[in-house]
Each structure stands twice: as C-alpha cells, then as structure tokens.
Design a protein around this nucleic acid. Sequence first.
DNA 1: TAGGTATTTAGACAAATGTCTAAATATTAT
DNA 2: ATAATATTTAGACATTTGTCTAAATACCTA
Lengths: 85, 85
Amino acid sequence: MNKVFKALNDPTRREILHLLKEKDLTAGDIAEAFHITKPSISHHLDILSQAELVTSEKKGQFVIYSLNTTVLDDIMKWIINLRAD
Amino acid sequence: MNKVFKALNDPTRREILHLLKEKDLTAGDIAEAFHITKPSISHHLDILSQAELVTSEKKGQFVIYSLNTTVLDDIMKWIINLRAD
DNA sequence: TAGGTATTTAGACAAATGTCTAAATATTAT
DNA sequence: ATAATATTTAGACATTTGTCTAAATACCTA
C-alpha cells in the first residue's frame, strides 16, 4: 500500500490515471498530454506500474498502458476504516 | 488535495492517524508511540495539520491533537470517480 | 522568581524525488 | 541493411523530505 500512496503523491501521475480512465493510451500519447519530456513520463509510468495502478502491454513498437483500479480498494478500505466509529 | 496526498504518503503519519482514531492524544503521547524524536513527530503533526487531517487545541502546557476525517471525503470522491464507468 | 515539563523552531544532513539530456534498445518500413 | 519511430535506461542535478541535535517558547508549580 506504501507504493500506491507514493504513486498517488504526484499531480502528474494522478492526471495520467485520469487520462487512462477514458481509454488505454500509448506512452507517447500520455507524454503529449504534458509539458514534460518522454523520459520523465516513462519514469512516472514506471512508478505507477510498480504500484500496480497501471498495466502495460507491448504492441509492436508501442507500449499501451491501461488503468488498474483494483489496488485502490485497499486505499478505500484504509480510509473507511479511519472513519468508522 | 495535494497536501492530503502528501500527508498520507508516510507510514508514520498514517499510523498517527490511526492512533488518533481511538482517542485524542497529546503531542507527547503520540511521540511515545514511535521510536522517533519529539521534534520529528512535531514536524509530522505539522504536515498533518496543514492537510487538515488533524486539529489541535492547546490545553495548558499540552497540545491535544484530534483526527479530522472530513478532508478524506475529497480523496474518496477522487478514487470513486476514477473507478466509475 | 526559579525550575521543571511540554512542545515547537532552527539549522544541519543524508536520502529520496522529479526533472533533464544523451544514449541504448526495439520495432517498422524503405 | 539503413533509416525512422517509440520507448526506456543511465547519469546528472536541484529540490524536497525525514530525521537529528540544540535552542527557544510556553505553561505550571513550589
């Protein structure tokens, strides 16, 4: 869960997740949505992958990234538990 | 919301929140629960305060900290929105 | 007023983070 | 084979972060 919190602690990465909510995207597509170099975006995608918030699949020369929300369940439970009476 | 994500991105701070879920505690009480110096805990409490995850009230020479879960609503909404179809 | 207790502030420092440029790797097309 | 495109890796660098010690502030009590 540490890795998920870490991955979520960056505005760029959170926005990447929102982009992927709409549809799967290549690394290049994602990079174009930001004023950040491709290597930097690649690094953000790596951190998101480590947290399992995204999955990736190689399709020819492209790498297609997809959102994976299952790990967010633990975060939700953690928050709910904090609020429970 | 940035400050909340930031505040949550540390195991010590997350544990402080869990301690405060049980009952209000003084800064000293909180510090005793960790193997970290009091100034360090004070700094963590400051970050939690900035995120409004805790509130504090001075009671004589003590400062009593309380959990405030209201700001977690935004985080919950953000996560739910990411999962919505 | 002095002395003791509770907490924060200030300043230092190593480690982690986000970004960049340059180079490497992998795939496709000519 | 060569060149072009897509992505990642490597290495550098400034900033942020978590921690510490020492000192300052605030309150209480004798």
